[in-house]
């Protein structure tokens, strides 16, 4: 089982993003995804910056995939997406069908990210005819689903988000701006103040969600480190650590070193067991 690092889904200051990826470059992580996937208004770190970081990471021996936007609502975003898919150097992660469409048209291989609805083998096989090399399992699916989909083993790779906050939904509305009393168009990039999103708890103080701009995430950190061996047997190629802080690099490094870790007290893993995603199954 190999360990990958998913794209940073939060809006961090540019210096923090660079510091993060410099540390990633020094890590043992063999596959890194990077790029803005949540909001086009976040312009601190531009596509050209991500390309430069991708080159830095590639120079330190890593495979790099450039992740693209999860929700594309404006026609004006399509030329930019096309430019990204056609970058000529790095494979992209498609997170909207627009990216799948463009990759197929340009005959470019791609990875299907977790927000593409791949719910069965026939759909995945169809994606493969369009150029899909690997898919990230949608977050709501289970270990049993994966076992069935990978039997017999397909021509493409499977990746599972095994550690990190799960992206659960995307909206037209920016929840961060709304909470700050700002409009989406005048948001002042309010999400930059929340490097791990805004924690939303129930009125009984049970952590429930994390609001990250237009994206809603799980409040809990999903932790499938206990299932790593099982995934390996099933034929999963990549275990993705979805980063929320620099500590996640250490989590990835520890996994690569073969270290085991107990299920943390506030983690969730329900989806893997075909239960409510927020459940912690022991």
């Amino acid at each position: 089982m190999k360990i990958s690092l998913g794209p940073l889904m939060y809006c961090w200051p540019k210096s923090d993003v660079y510091a993060f990826y410099e540390k990633v470059a020094d890590s043992n992580i063999p596959l890194v995804y990077l790029g803005e996937t949540v909001c086009t208004r976040r312009r601190q770190v531009k596509w050209s910056d991500y390309l430069a970081l991708a080159k830095l990471l590639q120079a330190s021996g890593k495979q790099v995939v450039l992740s693209t936007m999860a929700l594309i609502e404006n026609s004006s975003e399509l030329p930019e997406l096309r430019k990204q898919v056609a970058n000529g150097e790095f494979m992209v992660e498609a997170n909207d069908m627009a990216a799948v469409a463009i990759a197929q048209e340009l005959n470019q291989p791609f990875v299907c990210g977790p927000s593409i609805n791949n719910y069965n083998r026939a759909t995945l096989d169809k994606m493969a005819t369009w150029g899909m090399q690997r898919f990230v399992m949608p977050v709501d699916l289970s270990g049993e689903w994966l076992r069935q989909v990978l039997t017999p083993s397909p021509s493409y790779e499977a990746e599972v988000i095994g550690y990190g906050h799960l992206p659960l939904a995307h909206s037209a509305r920016c929840f961060t701006a709304r909470l700050k009393g700002l409009t989406k168009d005048g948001c002042d990039i309010a999400c930059a103040q929340y490097p791990r999103g805004i924690l939303a708890q129930t009125q009984e103080h049970q952590p429930l969600l994390r609001l990250n701009g237009i994206q809603t995430q799980s409040a809990s950190c999903c932790d499938l480190r206990q299932q790593l061996a099982q995934m390996e047997t099933m034929g999963v190629s990549w275990f993705r650590v979805s980063p929320y802080s620099q500590d996640c690099i250490s989590v990835a490094n520890a996994l690569i070193a073969g270290e085991t870790a107990p299920l943390t007290a506030d983690a969730c893993n329900g989806y893997w067991f075909n239960e409510a995603g927020m459940r912690r199954v022991v």
């Binding site: 709501d140 799960l166 659960l168 939904a169 995307h170 995603g277």
Partner: peptide
């Protein structure tokens, strides 16, 4: 089609 809030809970 891409909202998992219900399944999460």
């Amino acid at each position: 089609g891409r909202c998992q809030l219900s399944s999460y809970v």
